[in-house]
Write a protein that binds this DNA or RNA. Structure first.
Lengths: 167, 167
DNA sequence: TTAACCATGTAAAGCGTTACATGATTTC
DNA sequence: GAAATCATGTAACGCTTTACATGGTTAA
């Protein structure tokens, strides 16, 4: 999947690995984020397979490797984009812990839920900030995903709050 | 995390790897599920580190390796259970695709959303079936997680439906 | 001048899936 | 007699993170 996300970013404009990472942090980070140790080798691989091309430039004394998507890269990306998605798993560590909550006492249950609610609040603020940075020019689908992210964490907050209140 | 989930299952009762897998399918599968290729080596590792003990029995001509949690295993599990959870990512492939929806036409957008809504409906049915199997004796927290799972997928369904209707 | 940011990359380790491999029992 | 289920495991592969490693520029 990650190769296709990189190709997706490069479909919008040519970028360096560093820029892809920064872009991700300000857009997809709440549903997809990764490290440089993943990005750079992926770009090399995509270059080797002909899905992107590279242009080297020296900007401010620093080597910049700008990657551009090729037509085969666009094909690969669109093929992925048109493929049906598998159902997503929740994979929420906090939920996994609730599954085993019978092994904790109420005091510890409360503490954990309260801690997690704080983190959910922080995450909602982060996403609202991302949304705030978006200008009118930004692709409506990118705005939509951030809005869905905000709604998702608000939903989670309500769920965990309800459990806390029932204790 | 997986080691701790195995320990969590073994805290309830001693089990074989096969039973752990079956138990997971009927309880945690929507937020955590894994393969035999993960379970068996994990049990070996936990045995080597003294967190579980093994008892071999032959039942119906088949070798059964029943694993029991030790006190050090319980300590490890509880330590994990009491640790604050990191915020969960959404990691939903369908959402990732919406992020790149500007590269598809409306017809294809609709098809994908409709396909995914079908999968969400199926998943809700699966979880309702799991919940239906639970008797009164089942730990209330295990019931609660399934209920949260159902609510989660219903919430997702509403979100995707809204996007579809706006098209 | 020092911290933050820009920019690139490698190596090792961790985590997990898929495919392969075996063989018994039970149910239709 | 065939298919499903019970039961165990290994090997190869793939994906991703973490830690390590380098070095320039810009802002406080």
């Amino acid at each position: 999947m990650f190769e296709n996300i990189v190709l997706g970013f490069l479909t919008d404009k040519s970028m360096t690995g560093y820029e892809i990472k920064k872009n991700m942090e300000n857009s997809t980070s709440f549903f997809y984020n990764t490290s440089f140790g993943n990005i750079y080798p992926t770009l090399k691989k995509l270059e080797a397979s002909g899905h992107v091309t590279r242009e080297d430039e020296i900007i401010n004394g620093k080597l910049n490797k700008s990657y551009t998507i090729t037509s085969s890269g666009k094909d690969k990306f669109l093929q992925w984009l048109e493929t049906e998605s598998e159902i997503g798993m929740i994979r929420d560590e906090a939920l996994t812990k609730i599954f085993f909550f019978s092994h904790l006492d109420n005091k510890k249950r409360k503490e954990e839920l309260q801690d997690y609610l704080l983190k959910l609040n922080k995450q909602i603020e982060v996403l609202k900030e991302i949304k705030g940075k978006y200008t009118d020019k930004v692709d409506k689908w990118k705005v939509k995903t951030v809005e869905m992210g905000i709604d998702y964490y608000i939903f989670m907050k309500k769920s965990y709050k309800k459990i806390l209140e029932e204790l």
